[in-house]
Amino acid sequence: CHSECLGNCSQPDDPTKCVACRNFYLDGRCVETCPPPYYHFQDWRCVNFSFCQDLHHKCKNSRRQGCHQYVIHNNKCIPECPSGYTMNSSNLLCTPCLGPCPKVCHLLEGEKTIDSVTSAQELRGCTVINGSLIINIRGGNNLAAELEANLGLIEEISGYLKIRRSYALVSLSFFRKLRLIRGETLEIGNYSFYALDNQNLRQLWDWSKHNLTITQGKLFFHYNPKLCLSEIHKMEEVSGTKGRQERNDIALKTNGDQASCENELLKFSYIRTSFDKILLRWEPYWPPDFRDLLGFMLFYKEAPYQNVTEFDGQDACGSNSWTVVDIDPPLRSNDPKSQNHPGWLMRGLKPWTQYAIFVKTLVTFSDERRTYGAKSDIIYVQTDATNPSVPLDPISVSNSSSQIILKWKPPSDPNGNITHYLVFWERQAEDSELFELDYCLKGLKLPSRTWSPPFESEDSQKHNQSEYEDSAGECCSCPKTDSQILKELEESSFRKTFEDYLHNVVFVPRKT
């Protein structure tokens, strides 16, 4: 048989008469490798580009789960590009990614509803959504962080984005990388972005840091009482949809009607710091009717980097990364020049730590249904340095008659930039024990000054392991946590139920 035959053949030295091919099969003959313009397919066939392209389009058009959109890589027609490569849609070739590779997620039936953290986790790592997304989240724990972890990498949506009755959302900033909504599939009414009845939605994105392009379709905003109209108009300008909307697409009466839409800028007039305090004062603000001013709200939190936005980490279910302080308005003076500047002394802060701070007014709604208010920009203030805590785990070892090696770990709280350490030492008198000992005694162990690591005695271990207080009263049991108490109650309830079950099964009433 021919060298490319495997198993047997019907005619000697003829690659077209093989029972099976050793390498690849091409047009009725066995070959060692697939010549151009053919590609290896499933490690035994040679196919042309049209064959591989037909497989790709067949799966793409069917949208069946589990099928493969075949691509070409290293002269092979394979189910998908290997790690580190992405497909070129024009020629199906796998090309190296520039940075992290995109991950295209194809949605069944063309859309997916995100109504819980669990459903959001199914899209973790996706960068391109081939379909439409509907966000409908009523509640949950730590929602802002969970949504950002699972949806934060999405850069492109081919269909539309719909935010509907998501009472738990305060902001859409968890879509931190969303840059493009194509609108290839539109919501009824030709809408590519749809926001309806979101009672706590206050911000779409921080438009000073976020760009969003909507290729096709219109915007729809109705019944978002805490979303200011200025935020919607800003989205029109940034996304390129200005002029597409009709009169009733953006409701003037049901958007922002319960919001404090600040239209003035508060400026800080005085800032002073110490290692654990920050004193702030800002310019006074009074609405047209000074009785509408209820006070100020001061927001602050630790910020290692200057990239904080107002609604980071917030949701309507209680999660809030900001510390909020309510401040009463100052006494009002008739003389504008003698107006008191409101302020606040922030206490209990960490030394040498940068804080993000902003302040906003708290006002009631005027009778004319106009909203007044003022808010400052987010500023960054760093507390002063102070003395560091003591170095940890000092170790001293003498390696000769004239040297001592000293080692330690950095302090747990540096409280500033540590530039150097101060080492103090003092000579001590020799131990009298060394002169009084009889060095001729056998088995004498000389006193040693070398360091030995501390260890816990058996008594201390027994005390720590004991669940009861000892007789001397030195140790006591740790208080039980809520989960331990709940577990004990469940076990007790189970024992009672099981005992009742045994009584009912074992003891049967005697027939009379």
Score class of each variant (00 low, 15 high):
residue 105 C to Q: 01
residue 105 C to T: 00
residue 107 L to N: 09
residue 109 E to P: 13
residue 109 E to F: 02
residue 110 G to V: 04
residue 110 G to E: 13
residue 119 S to E: 08
residue 125 G to V: 08
residue 125 G to A: 13
residue 127 T to D: 04
residue 128 V to K: 05
residue 128 V to G: 12
residue 133 L to Y: 01
residue 136 N to W: 07
residue 143 L to Q: 15
residue 146 E to M: 06
residue 149 A to D: 11
residue 153 L to G: 09
residue 155 E to N: 10
residue 161 L to H: 00
residue 163 I to P: 00
residue 164 R to V: 03
residue 171 S to G: 13
residue 176 R to K: 13
residue 177 K to A: 06
residue 179 R to K: 13
residue 180 L to S: 10
residue 181 I to V: 11
residue 181 I to K: 00
residue 185 T to M: 08
residue 186 L to M: 11
residue 187 E to N: 12
residue 189 G to N: 15
residue 194 Y to E: 14
residue 199 Q to I: 09
residue 205 W to V: 03
residue 207 W to A: 05
residue 208 S to W: 10
residue 209 K to E: 04
residue 216 Q to H: 11
residue 220 F to Y: 03
residue 226 K to R: 08
residue 226 K to W: 15
residue 233 H to P: 02
residue 236 E to G: 04
residue 237 E to S: 05
residue 239 S to E: 01
residue 248 N to G: 08
residue 249 D to Q: 03
residue 249 D to E: 15
residue 250 I to A: 07
residue 250 I to D: 13
residue 252 L to N: 12
residue 260 S to V: 09
residue 260 S to Q: 07
residue 261 C to P: 04
residue 262 E to S: 09
residue 264 E to R: 10
residue 269 S to Q: 06
residue 273 T to P: 03
residue 274 S to A: 04
residue 283 E to S: 08
residue 287 P to S: 06
residue 297 M to A: 03
residue 299 F to C: 03
residue 305 Y to A: 15
residue 311 F to I: 08
residue 317 C to K: 01
residue 325 V to P: 00
residue 326 D to S: 05
residue 329 P to S: 05
residue 329 P to R: 12
residue 331 L to P: 03
residue 335 D to F: 13
residue 339 Q to I: 12
residue 340 N to L: 10
residue 345 L to Y: 15
residue 346 M to I: 07
residue 347 R to L: 07
residue 347 R to E: 12
residue 348 G to Y: 02
residue 349 L to M: 05
residue 349 L to E: 00
residue 350 K to H: 14
residue 351 P to N: 03
residue 352 W to F: 08
residue 353 T to L: 06
residue 363 V to G: 15
residue 367 D to K: 11
residue 368 E to K: 14
residue 368 E to M: 11
residue 371 T to W: 12
residue 371 T to M: 05
residue 373 G to E: 08
residue 373 G to P: 05
residue 381 V to A: 05
residue 392 L to W: 05
residue 395 I to R: 15
residue 404 I to M: 13
residue 410 P to L: 11
